[in-house]
Amino acid sequence: MSYATLIRQIEVGEGLGFVDARALGAALLDGGVPELETAAFLVAFNQHDPGLDAWLGLHAALAERLPDFAAPSGPFRTVVLPTYHGVRAHPHLTPLLALLLKRFGIPVLIHGVFEGGGGTAAAYVLRELGIMPCSTTAQVNAHLQEEGIAFAPVALLSPGLAALLALRARLGVDGWVTRLAMLADVLGEHSVRVTPVASGAEIAPTREVLEALGGHALLLQGCEGEAFADPLQRPEMVLMQDGQWQPMYGAQTTASVLENLPEMDARATGAWTAQVMRDHLSLPLPIRNQLAVCLYAAGYTEDLNQARAITAINGFGLGVRALSLRERVGERGA
C-alpha cells in the first residue's frame, strides 16, 4: 500500500474504495502508519470527504477491533451516546439524557473521551454524578446489566482510535476521526445509536452511511457536536430503523428563553442534573423531545405519539407513574 498515492488520491477528490479504505483503516488503527503520514491522512480526510465506500471500509476496520460489549437482556434496546467534543457555550446535558433514559428502565452506554478540548467534557459531569469510567469490557457489561448505565472511555473501545483522536487534538483538526468514532456500532442490533453531527453539512453524508450500515440510529445536529439537542433551539431529528428513515421532529425556527439552566462548568451542571432528577424539574423542550424519540426508538412505546404523551408534562410525570405501575405489577406477580 502506497500511502503517498492514497493521500494524493484523497486530495484530488477521487475518494477511496472499500478495500483500500478498510486496509488503510486497519493500518491506522493498529499504529502501522508512520506519524507523518498519519497526520497527512488526518488533514486530507478533514478537507475532502472520501466517499461512501471509504466510510464503510473505515467503519469495517474499526468494527473488527471493537471489544465484545453486550447489550443487556430485556425488552428495550440500549441507547448508545457518543461524546467526543466537549461544550463551551452550553451546559453538557448528555449525562442528563442518559439518566432520564435510565429512569425509564432503558440501558445506556456512553462512550467517548476524558477531556473537552478546552470546554466541558461529559466525563467531567459524569464524575460529579458518581458515574466513573469503566476499565474493562467485563466491567462495562456488568454495569449495563446491573446498573443500567456505563461509561466506556475511547481507549477501551480502541486504543488505536484513541491515539488518532489524540493526534487530532495536536493538529487542531476535527474531522473524520471524530465522525468515525460517532458512527461506531459498539452494541449491534439490540441498540439505538444516537449519532450527532457538528454541522448541517455533515447530515447528508452521515445519513447515507447510516442507511448503508442499517440498524437503528437517531441522527441530529448535536449541541456543539455532542449527543444532546441544543436546549435552546431544537434541531431536526430523524430516526432510522432497519434502513428506513422517519422524520421525528422538525427544527425550531426561533430560540427558546430558559431561565433555569445551570452554569457551564461541570460542578454546577452535575449539581443541577442531580436536582432535576431528584425533584423532577421541568426539562428544556428539545431535551424532552429527544427523550421521547429515544423512548420510542428503544421500544418503550409503540409509536412516537405515546412517547410524546409520556414526556409531555415535564419529562417525568406520566413516565414515572407508568414505571411505578410496572413495578407494582411486578411486585404482585412476584
Rank of each mutant, 00 (worst) to 15 (best):
G222M: 00
L165W: 03
F18R: 13
L183I: 10
A152I: 01
L6S: 07
L261H: 01
R22E: 14
P262H: 00
L291Y: 11
F45R: 03
Y296D: 11
A39G: 15
M1L: 15
G172Q: 01
T94V: 15
F45A: 07
H216A: 15
A271Q: 05
E302C: 08
L220T: 15
E224N: 06
T83G: 06
P284Q: 04
G188H: 07
S191A: 12
G200C: 04
Y296P: 08
L62R: 02
L220D: 10
V276K: 00
P286I: 02
G51W: 01
L220M: 09
G172V: 00
G319L: 03
V154H: 09
G200D: 10
M237L: 12
A217E: 07
A150M: 13
M1E: 14
V192C: 06
V108Y: 06
F316R: 05
E37F: 00
G112K: 00
Q290R: 04
G105C: 07
G32W: 03
R22C: 09
L109W: 01
F228C: 05
L101Y: 02
N289F: 07
H48P: 06
G250T: 06
V320Y: 12
G51M: 05
Q275H: 11
A255S: 13
A255R: 05
E224P: 05
I110E: 13
R179S: 09
A184L: 07
P82T: 04
I7K: 14
V257N: 13
V177D: 15
L304P: 12
I7T: 11
I313C: 12
L239G: 14
D185C: 05
A271P: 03
A204Q: 13
A251N: 05
G57H: 04
R22L: 06
F104Y: 09
A181L: 01
S191Q: 11
E11F: 07
L93R: 03
A61S: 11
L129F: 01
V209P: 14
V79T: 10
E331M: 08
R326H: 14
P34S: 03
L291C: 14
L109A: 04
E128L: 02
S135R: 10
A251K: 03
G25L: 14
R278N: 10
L29T: 08
A21C: 05
C223R: 01
